[in-house]
Design a protein around this nucleic acid. Structure first.
Length: 190
DNA sequence: GTTAAGATCTGCT
DNA sequence: GCAGATCTTAACG
Protein backbone atom coordinates (compact mmCIF):
# COMPACT_ATOMS: atom_id res chain seq x y z
CA UNK A 1 0.00 0.00 0.00
CA UNK A 2 1.24 3.45 -0.85
CA UNK A 3 1.46 5.28 2.47
CA UNK A 4 3.49 8.17 1.14
CA UNK A 5 0.55 10.56 1.15
CA UNK A 6 0.23 10.28 4.94
CA UNK A 7 2.18 11.90 7.72
CA UNK A 8 2.73 15.29 6.10
CA UNK A 9 -0.02 17.60 4.98
CA UNK A 10 -3.68 16.96 5.82
CA UNK A 11 -5.06 18.82 2.80
CA UNK A 12 -2.86 16.83 0.43
CA UNK A 13 -3.93 13.62 2.14
CA UNK A 14 -7.62 14.58 1.82
CA UNK A 15 -7.14 14.94 -1.95
CA UNK A 16 -4.96 11.84 -2.13
CA UNK A 17 -7.53 9.64 -0.39
CA UNK A 18 -10.08 10.17 -3.16
CA UNK A 19 -10.34 6.97 -5.19
CA UNK A 20 -9.03 4.71 -2.41
CA UNK A 21 -10.92 1.67 -1.18
CA UNK A 22 -12.43 1.54 2.28
CA UNK A 23 -12.93 -2.08 3.41
CA UNK A 24 -14.82 -3.48 6.39
CA UNK A 25 -14.86 -7.09 7.59
CA UNK A 26 -17.47 -8.47 9.96
CA UNK A 27 -18.90 -11.89 10.76
CA UNK A 28 -21.58 -11.17 8.19
CA UNK A 29 -19.08 -10.63 5.38
CA UNK A 30 -16.99 -8.04 3.60
CA UNK A 31 -18.16 -4.65 2.37
CA UNK A 32 -16.07 -2.14 0.45
CA UNK A 33 -16.40 1.13 -1.43
CA UNK A 34 -14.41 3.80 -3.23
CA UNK A 35 -13.91 7.07 -1.39
CA UNK A 36 -15.42 9.88 -3.47
CA UNK A 37 -15.81 12.74 -0.98
CA UNK A 38 -13.59 13.99 1.88
CA UNK A 39 -13.16 17.03 4.12
CA UNK A 40 -10.01 18.29 5.86
CA UNK A 41 -10.04 19.52 9.46
CA UNK A 42 -6.89 21.37 10.48
CA UNK A 43 -5.29 22.18 13.80
CA UNK A 44 -4.25 25.73 12.92
CA UNK A 45 -6.64 28.54 12.11
CA UNK A 46 -9.63 26.20 11.87
CA UNK A 47 -12.32 26.77 14.55
CA UNK A 48 -14.51 24.07 12.97
CA UNK A 49 -12.05 21.35 13.95
CA UNK A 50 -12.84 19.42 17.13
CA UNK A 51 -9.19 19.71 18.14
CA UNK A 52 -9.10 23.50 17.82
CA UNK A 53 -9.65 23.97 21.56
CA UNK A 54 -7.04 21.50 22.66
CA UNK A 55 -6.98 17.83 23.42
CA UNK A 56 -9.99 16.31 25.20
CA UNK A 57 -11.19 12.82 25.96
CA UNK A 58 -13.43 12.89 22.90
CA UNK A 59 -10.90 13.95 20.28
CA UNK A 60 -7.85 12.15 21.67
CA UNK A 61 -7.72 9.84 18.65
CA UNK A 62 -7.19 12.86 16.40
CA UNK A 63 -3.80 13.37 17.98
CA UNK A 64 -2.67 9.83 17.21
CA UNK A 65 -0.31 8.70 14.45
CA UNK A 66 -1.29 8.65 10.76
CA UNK A 67 -3.87 6.04 9.72
CA UNK A 68 -5.63 6.12 13.08
CA UNK A 69 -9.44 6.10 12.94
CA UNK A 70 -11.25 8.96 14.72
CA UNK A 71 -14.93 8.17 15.19
CA UNK A 72 -17.47 10.26 17.09
CA UNK A 73 -21.19 10.28 17.74
CA UNK A 74 -23.31 13.24 16.61
CA UNK A 75 -26.92 14.45 16.78
CA UNK A 76 -28.02 11.51 18.92
CA UNK A 77 -28.17 9.14 15.97
CA UNK A 78 -25.13 9.06 13.78
CA UNK A 79 -21.41 8.36 13.72
CA UNK A 80 -18.82 10.16 11.63
CA UNK A 81 -15.64 8.47 10.44
CA UNK A 82 -12.30 10.29 10.10
CA UNK A 83 -8.80 9.28 9.09
CA UNK A 84 -5.85 10.84 10.91
CA UNK A 85 -3.24 11.76 8.30
CA UNK A 86 -1.05 14.33 10.04
CA UNK A 87 2.03 13.53 12.14
CA UNK A 88 1.26 12.29 15.65
CA UNK A 89 0.35 15.07 18.07
CA UNK A 90 -0.99 17.62 15.57
CA UNK A 91 -4.71 16.97 15.96
CA UNK A 92 -5.85 16.99 12.34
CA UNK A 93 -8.06 14.56 10.44
CA UNK A 94 -9.85 13.86 7.17
CA UNK A 95 -13.61 13.23 7.35
CA UNK A 96 -14.78 10.55 4.92
CA UNK A 97 -18.15 11.88 3.73
CA UNK A 98 -19.16 9.44 1.00
CA UNK A 99 -18.13 6.25 -0.80
CA UNK A 100 -19.24 4.53 -3.98
CA UNK A 101 -20.42 1.02 -2.99
CA UNK A 102 -18.36 -1.78 -4.58
CA UNK A 103 -18.74 -5.04 -2.63
CA UNK A 104 -21.25 -6.35 -0.11
CA UNK A 105 -24.15 -4.36 -1.55
CA UNK A 106 -26.79 -6.65 -0.05
CA UNK A 107 -25.20 -6.34 3.37
CA UNK A 108 -25.20 -2.55 3.18
CA UNK A 109 -28.80 -2.63 2.05
CA UNK A 110 -29.76 -4.77 5.04
CA UNK A 111 -28.09 -2.34 7.42
CA UNK A 112 -29.52 0.78 5.78
CA UNK A 113 -33.01 -0.66 5.35
CA UNK A 114 -34.58 -2.69 2.59
CA UNK A 115 -35.44 -0.80 -0.56
CA UNK A 116 -32.62 1.66 -0.06
CA UNK A 117 -31.38 2.78 -3.47
CA UNK A 118 -27.78 2.19 -4.46
CA UNK A 119 -26.81 5.84 -4.43
CA UNK A 120 -28.42 6.32 -1.04
CA UNK A 121 -26.36 3.61 0.69
CA UNK A 122 -23.29 5.60 1.70
CA UNK A 123 -23.71 9.13 0.33
CA UNK A 124 -23.13 10.96 3.60
CA UNK A 125 -21.07 10.56 6.79
CA UNK A 126 -23.86 9.03 8.90
CA UNK A 127 -25.11 6.75 6.12
CA UNK A 128 -21.59 5.56 5.39
CA UNK A 129 -21.06 4.52 9.00
CA UNK A 130 -24.39 2.66 9.04
CA UNK A 131 -23.60 0.80 5.81
CA UNK A 132 -20.11 -0.15 7.05
CA UNK A 133 -21.23 -0.94 10.63
CA UNK A 134 -18.74 1.59 12.00
CA UNK A 135 -19.20 2.59 15.64
CA UNK A 136 -17.31 3.91 18.64
CA UNK A 137 -15.58 0.58 19.28
CA UNK A 138 -13.38 1.29 16.24
CA UNK A 139 -12.25 4.67 17.55
CA UNK A 140 -8.44 4.70 17.60
CA UNK A 141 -8.19 1.66 15.33
CA UNK A 142 -5.14 1.23 13.05
CA UNK A 143 -6.49 1.48 9.50
CA UNK A 144 -3.74 -0.72 8.07
CA UNK A 145 -5.35 -3.73 9.76
CA UNK A 146 -8.59 -5.68 9.78
CA UNK A 147 -11.45 -5.43 10.42
CA UNK A 148 -11.45 -1.89 8.98
CA UNK A 149 -8.78 -0.83 6.55
CA UNK A 150 -7.82 1.37 3.62
CA UNK A 151 -6.37 0.20 0.31
CA UNK A 152 -5.00 2.23 -2.56
CA UNK A 153 -6.45 1.82 -6.02
CA UNK A 154 -3.98 0.81 -8.75
CA UNK A 155 -6.63 1.27 -11.44
CA UNK A 156 -7.22 4.89 -10.54
CA UNK A 157 -7.06 7.10 -13.65
CA UNK A 158 -4.19 9.57 -13.54
CA UNK A 159 -6.41 12.30 -14.90
CA UNK A 160 -8.85 12.01 -11.99
CA UNK A 161 -10.70 15.30 -11.75
CA UNK A 162 -10.92 16.73 -8.23
CA UNK A 163 -12.95 19.74 -7.16
CA UNK A 164 -12.73 21.67 -3.88
CA UNK A 165 -15.74 23.35 -2.25
CA UNK A 166 -16.71 24.78 1.16
CA UNK A 167 -17.34 22.17 3.85
CA UNK A 168 -20.88 21.04 4.56
CA UNK A 169 -22.77 21.37 7.83
CA UNK A 170 -20.15 23.43 9.67
CA UNK A 171 -20.99 26.83 11.13
CA UNK A 172 -17.40 28.00 11.54
CA UNK A 173 -14.89 28.88 8.81
CA UNK A 174 -17.51 28.50 6.08
CA UNK A 175 -15.28 30.19 3.53
CA UNK A 176 -12.54 27.58 3.62
CA UNK A 177 -12.41 25.31 0.57
CA UNK A 178 -11.56 22.14 2.43
CA UNK A 179 -14.07 19.69 0.95
CA UNK A 180 -12.80 17.56 -1.92
CA UNK A 181 -14.89 15.50 -4.33
CA UNK A 182 -14.38 13.45 -7.48
CA UNK A 183 -15.94 15.69 -10.13
CA UNK A 184 -19.17 14.31 -11.55
CA UNK A 185 -19.30 11.18 -9.40
CA UNK A 186 -22.87 9.97 -8.83
CA UNK A 187 -22.36 8.92 -5.22
CA UNK A 188 -21.54 12.29 -3.63
CA UNK A 189 -23.61 13.42 -0.65
CA UNK A 190 -24.70 16.37 -2.78
C1' DG B 1 -25.23 19.09 38.46
C1' DT B 2 -27.12 21.48 34.54
C1' DT B 3 -27.34 23.21 29.97
C1' DA B 4 -26.55 24.29 25.13
C1' DA B 5 -24.93 23.04 20.71
C1' DG B 6 -23.51 19.87 17.20
C1' DA B 7 -18.62 17.73 10.80
C1' DT B 8 -26.77 14.53 10.21
C1' DC B 9 -30.71 12.08 8.29
C1' DT B 10 -35.49 11.19 7.49
C1' DG B 11 -40.15 12.26 6.79
C1' DC B 12 -43.61 15.35 5.92
C1' DT B 13 -45.44 19.72 3.54
C1' DG C 1 -37.81 22.85 1.19
C1' DC C 2 -37.96 22.63 6.23
C1' DA C 3 -38.35 21.22 10.98
C1' DG C 4 -37.88 17.49 14.35
C1' DA C 5 -35.60 13.50 16.44
C1' DT C 6 -32.27 12.33 19.92
C1' DC C 7 -27.93 11.94 22.96
C1' DT C 8 -23.06 12.67 23.80
C1' DT C 9 -19.70 15.98 24.95
C1' DA C 10 -17.84 19.97 26.98
C1' DA C 11 -18.35 24.28 29.19
C1' DC C 12 -20.18 26.64 33.05
C1' DG C 13 -22.08 27.35 37.86
Amino acid sequence: MNEKIFGYDTVEAARGLLGWYLCRETEEGLVSGIIVETEAYLSEDDPACHASRGKTKRNAAMFGPPLTAYIYFIYGNYYCFNVVTAPEGRGEAVLIRAVEPVAGLDLMQNRRGAGCSLKNLASGPGKLCQAFAIDKSLNGHDLRRKPLFLKDNPDLPLNLSIKSTPRIGVSAAKEKQLRFVITGNKFLSR
